[in-house]
Computed example of a mutant assay.
Amino acid sequence: MDNLYLIATIADQPVAIRAALVESVVDIDHIAPVPLAPPHIAGLAPLRSRVLTIICCERALGLPPTPARRSRIVVVNVDGHHYGLRVGTIEDARVIEDAPAPIRARLDAGWARVALGMLDFGGEALLLVDPQALVAGPDEALAA
Rank of each mutant, 00 (worst) to 15 (best):
M1L: 13
M1T: 15
M1H: 12
D2M: 09
L6E: 01
I7Y: 00
A8E: 04
A8P: 00
D12Y: 06
D12G: 12
Q13C: 04
Q13G: 02
P14S: 01
V15A: 04
V15M: 07
R18S: 08
R18E: 12
R18P: 02
R18H: 09
R18I: 09
R18Y: 08
A19C: 08
A20Q: 13
A20R: 12
L21S: 05
V26Y: 00
V26P: 00
I28E: 03
I28Q: 09
D29E: 14
H30E: 13
H30Y: 13
H30R: 10
P33K: 13
P33L: 07
V34G: 06
V34P: 06
V34Y: 02
V34A: 09
P35V: 07
L36Y: 09
L36E: 13
A37G: 10
A37P: 08
P38K: 05
P39T: 03
P39S: 11
H40L: 03
I41P: 02
I41A: 02
A42S: 05
A45W: 01
P46L: 06
P46A: 11
P46W: 06
L47E: 12
S49Q: 15
V51S: 00
L52V: 11
L52T: 09
I54C: 04
I54P: 00
C56E: 14
C57L: 14
E58V: 08
A60R: 00
A60K: 00
L61M: 03
L63D: 13
L63A: 13
P64V: 12
P64Y: 07
P65N: 05
P65M: 04
P65F: 01
P65Q: 03
P65S: 09
T66Y: 05
T66S: 01
R72H: 07
I73K: 07
I73N: 08
V74T: 01
V76I: 02
N77E: 15
D79I: 15
D79N: 09
G80A: 05
G80K: 09
H82C: 05
H82R: 12
Y83S: 02
Y83G: 04
G88A: 12
I90E: 00
I90C: 06
I90L: 12
E91D: 07
A93G: 02
R94S: 11
V95P: 00
E97Y: 03
P100F: 04
P100K: 09
P102S: 13
P102W: 04
A105S: 12
R106Y: 07
R106V: 15
D108C: 05
D108W: 13
A109H: 10
A109V: 14
A112W: 10
R113D: 11
V114L: 00
V114S: 02
A115L: 05
L116H: 03
L116W: 05
L116N: 03
L119H: 04
L119F: 05
F121V: 11
G122A: 11
G123R: 01
G123D: 09
G123Q: 01
E124D: 15
A125Y: 12
A125L: 15
L126F: 01
L126N: 01
L127I: 15
V129W: 08
V129K: 04
D130M: 05
P131K: 05
Q132L: 13
Q132H: 14
L134W: 06
V135S: 06
A136N: 05
A136D: 09
G137I: 00
G137E: 06
E140R: 14
A141C: 08
L142C: 15
L142N: 12
L142G: 15
